[in-house]
């Protein structure tokens, strides 16, 4: 067992523990933290196979950007599964999902184990020159891909802004009010969009319960209260 193997097993173990923590943690912020550990472990694996640039990108994108985005979203949408026990169907769904996941995992693992891999004579080890990545990305073929991925990101950007932006016009039917309450008068115009406001106690009265709950969850998650 050489050093590489030791590193592999260590990273794999961390990754697995992270994923299991993500799936099992009752509090969603704990889950996200566990996931960060898993992402970092995968980044370590990337280093191990000589993909250093990729490792850096993974840390930046996954452990950084995506996780932060997720935390933002979690803060804006409190009231998760902790509030009440899972309904009957969800327990059933877990059974099905477990069956599917186990089946897929077993099928892939069986196939991998039964495949006689053969190392090609061309194969190289050691870290890849990042300049080669750059050349490839701007080559004739992948230059096109590079342009298309910008369009994908553009679509995501525009779509996310349209969806997440709170309209200046009052939302009909009482956006925040529960279904049964009579229509409330439109809230007074606000300078900052509500979506970006910090959860503070001096918000308008009708919105307080939801945000208090967010607060409570944050406290419970041990991330401090932000004040």
């Amino acid at each position: 067992m050489n050093g590489q193997a030791v590193a592999f097993f260590a990273l794999a173990a961390v990754g697995l523990l992270g994923v299991i923590g993500f799936l099992r943690a009752p509090r969603i912020l704990h889950a996200v933290l566990a996931l960060v550990a898993a992402f970092l472990a995968v980044a370590g694996l990337f280093v191990l196979v000589g993909a250093e640039f990729l490792a850096a990108a993974t840390v930046l994108l996954y452990a950084g950007a995506i996780t932060v985005m997720a935390v933002f979203a979690i803060m804006l949408t409190p009231g998760g599964e902790e509030k009440r026990g899972a309904p009957r169907w969800a327990r059933g769904a877990r059974g099905w999902a477990g069956l599917v996941a186990a089946g897929v995992g077993a099928a892939v693992a069986t196939s991998v184990l039964a495949t006689p891999f053969q190392r090609s004579p061309y194969a190289v080890d050691g870290p890849t020159d990042t300049a080669l990545l750059g050349t490839l990305l701007l080559s004739d073929r992948y230059g096109l891909h590079f342009e298309v991925i910008t369009l994908v990101l553009l679509a995501a950007l525009v779509g996310a802004i349209v969806l997440a932006r709170e309209e200046a016009i009052p939302v009909r039917g009482g956006a925040r009010a529960p279904d049964a309450t009579p229509p409330t008068p439109p809230p007074a115009p606000q300078k900052t969009p509500a979506a970006l406001r910090e959860p503070t106690a001096d918000g308008p009265a009708p919105e307080a319960p939801a945000e208090r709950e967010a607060e409570r969850e944050l406290v419970g998650a041990g991330r401090g209260d932000g004040r």
Partner: peptide, 23 residues
């Protein structure tokens, strides 16, 4: 709307194919 569960149930059929093919 319980899309997830139905996805899971439906995927099961293909999982079986995959398993059979793998074995």
């Amino acid at each position: 709307g319980q899309v997830q569960r139905y996805n899971a149930v439906a995927l099961l059929v293909l999982v079986i194919i995959a398993l059979v093919a793998a074995i």
